[in-house]
């Protein structure tokens, strides 16, 4: 799957995150802002990278505005934003859980 357009998913409300994605020539650029960045910044980024990897996304710019979301929420929002931004959805839902 390839990111071919910009997309947006999620909200700014507590326990959620807003995530933007945009096409990029090569590599993943993840820009993370979080209210809990000192405690969980590394964990949030790891979840984001793992989710993108499972989706087969290796080139994108991702901006995350986190409001203390749980890992499952982070995965769900990333899957949604990729679905909105990708050329075609080729991922297998069963491997994403």
């Amino acid at each position: 799957m390839k990111i071919v357009r910009e997309a947006l998913a999620g909200t700014l409300e507590s326990s959620d995150l807003m995530v933007r994605i945009a096409p990029r020539d090569a590599g993943l650029e993840i820009v993370l802002q979080s209210e809990v960045i000192h405690q969980f910044g590394a964990q949030i980024e790891a979840v984001a990278r793992e989710t993108l990897e499972k989706l087969g996304i290796d080139a994108a710019q991702v901006i995350i505005e986190d409001k203390g979301a749980l890992d499952c929420v982070i995965r769900a929002r990333l899957q949604t934003v990729v679905r909105r931004a990708a050329d075609e959805w080729t991922a297998d839902w069963s491997v994403l859980a």
Binding site: E6, L8, L12, E13, M18
Partner: peptide, 20 residues
């Protein structure tokens, strides 16, 4: 915290109108 809901809606509306 109405501002969070308000600005979430603005972000999505702007995006739909092509303004990221």
């Amino acid at each position: 915290s109405l501002s969070l809901l308000l600005m979430t809606e603005i972000a999505h509306l702007a995006h739909e109108r092509g303004h990221t």
